[in-house]
Amino acid sequence: MTTMLHAGSVLAGIAEAGRTTTGEEVLFWILAPVMVLAALGLIFARRTVYAALSVILVMVSLAVLYVAQEAPFLGIVQVIVYTGAVMMLFLFVLMLVGVDVADTFADTLGAHRWVAALFGIGLGAVLISVVLRAADIAPQGLTAANEGGNPSGVARIIFGDYVITLQVVGILLITAAVGAIVLTHKERLVAKVGQRERADARIAAGEVLTPLPAPGVYARSNAMDVPALGPDGRPLEHSVSRVLRIRGQQRSVAEVHAHLDPGTGTGSTPPERTITGEEQVR
């Protein structure tokens, strides 16, 4: 509870003159381990979606830290751009590529993984010593710079000193968008086939244009596997579903006929002539 209060006070009125308040300190020590753990999830998560989710966690926490660091504008942008757009894009692509692509941990490159881990730790070590060496500056804080509100301060610099950069970055974004379209574009190798082309092709092939006849209907048995009878009394083999025919589950008319009980005349009217499926065409 106290932590919550502290966090709240941190977000409300952050330190003046770059000195950190206790509230910010507490916030940091809560968020930092969470972030590091979540980041480690990126290395160890077996499923890609979990990795993506842990990255989202890191990014949201970063946004909170930005706000705490007197950069509310960046914090909002972080949430919108990274968690809102970038990570969602990642998830989309994950879905597209296949969520269930699990990574096997058996590495194909021999000792690569251990060497990589070693140097990853080494990188952290040397960089930390660099940081501790270099960052020995008395913090000045942004109270003065943020006087007219942080977004307007940032805007003044972006549209002042960096306006050319802004234009260039805009061009870069458009180029990237066009690039993405070009990269994912599928070249059409043949002319597009529409309804009209399909119809034309069917007529040209001389196929049956009407719907296929429905299978035979004997109400007292499963009618789907019995062929219908044509006007000439012959069974129409293709009226039975192709699947049933291939599976061999089709029954002939004669077979069905044999099972019928001739005595009971309920239901449908039994044919007066014997139907065996082998009558002559009249």
Partner: peptide, 23 residues
Amino acid sequence: LVLSVLLFSIGATTVLVRRNAII
């Protein structure tokens, strides 16, 4: 800054050890 370095190193290590391009 230390936190930033840690995150950076973890990111770099991820690039080195994971094989899934998205990760």
